[in-house]
Design a binder for these strands. Structure first.
Lengths: 206, 206
DNA sequence: CTTTCAGTGGACATGCTGTAGTTTGAAAGA
DNA sequence: TCTTTCAAACTACAGCATGTCCACTGAAAG
């Protein structure tokens, strides 16, 4: 059939733009009406796009949510791994990444709440993005725990493994939301509580 | 229309029995297939009952889930309030109720996971049972925190309010599930970690 | 023998996801 | 200019879910 060469520039850009429009619409719906169930129809209408366009762009409802989660993952401060804190000591590096992620948690609270809850009910409903977020975080925390152990910054009797477990539970979004939404505390107070919790649970008294 | 007197005995008992059959079926489905979305149709089929019976018995899907949650609340060891630990000191009383609730969390893990996640996505989807569970727990923890403060069992510089916040975050189902499902730890290990966490966060070093 | 009522079964309205096929219109190429 | 390509729209359909209504059945209660 000898297909003609076809280098897209504007067309591909336009496609990318509608893709972003749809993701923005989904984000906006989850942020503004967290209690309402979100249908693909409503997302499409909000993005001023037809429903079938959503399916051609993301394949399915799950693909749509997966893409949103992925964008948050790329943009957000979820990086706890050896990214920028190499020059600091382990203790400071841990506390810094806690503060950074709490800020992200607060900024995207409703959206993250929806993604995590949907994943808990049916992992396939959000693609695999929550799982990916989890493994990334687990790796980061293992790295932190090892470094703390190597520097002798852990409490007496606390192994790197135990530290990783406790840090996992106490630095995650669920813990954040227990304090932020569950107790109605302001962000800065939650930040301090989470940092304090991490210190008391695994760090040596300085 | 002069309605005839009608004292039910067997009929009311039978109705109560089908009610329980339906709740058992829902519990079983949530326990055995946590990942599958549960339709009223499937619940009815599992209970060997017609779908309309579920609606006459519980009014709606939400009413059904609400009733299940209520039964767990009555039966389960969610009582942290002044129930049985009056004779012990505050510290022991707190740790005992943590151990008790962890056991309940583990026993009903899948079902609680479903209820909490559904409530997070749409509070109306489970009636108000999760909210009720929350307020009950909050009251219990406030009571614990006050008692700890009165006995001077709190860490230096930790107020009863801060203790209540931290205990809320660290003794709840979400925290449990972070360790149990999120980290794949066995129940007894999770129990010890949660007790340890509560101690390190709010209790005075003894 | 009659009344009452839990439970059944079917029909229906509504709203959702997902698939398929056709059409439109503008960008890209010749 | 004229043709090809492709994102996006539109339409129709299948399937499954919740929720409501209503007539019917059959056994318990009077």
């Amino acid at each position: 059939m000898a297909t003609r060469k076809y280098d897209q520039r504007l067309r591909a850009d336009a496609a990318e733009q509608t893709r972003r429009d749809i993701l923005d619409a989904l984000y906006q719906l989850l942020r503004d009406e967290p209690a309402m169930p979100v249908s693909v129809e409503r997302v499409a209408a909000t993005a001023r796009v037809s429903r079938s366009t959503v399916y051609t762009a993301f394949g399915s409802r799950a693909g749509l949510f997966d893409a949103l989660g992925d964008e948050l993952r790329r943009r957000g401060g979820f990086h706890r791994a050896p990214n920028g804190g190499n020059d600091q000591d382990a203790r400071r590096s841990l506390l810094d990444s806690i503060r950074a992620s709490v800020a992200t948690f607060a900024e995207h609270r409703s959206v993250l709440r929806a993604l995590y809850s949907m994943a808990a009910l049916d992992p396939r409903a959000v693609g695999g993005v929550v799982e990916r977020l989890g493994t990334g975080r687990a790796e980061g925390l293992a790295w932190h725990a090892e470094r703390l152990a190597a520097e002798g910054a852990l409490r007496r009797g606390v192994s790197a493994a135990e530290a990783a477990h406790l840090l996992w539970a106490v630095t995650g979004f669920e813990f954040f939301d227990q304090l932020y939404t569950g107790r109605g505390l302001p962000v800065d107070e939650v930040t301090e509580l989470m940092a304090t919790a991490a210190e008391r649970l695994v760090l040596r008294v300085s």
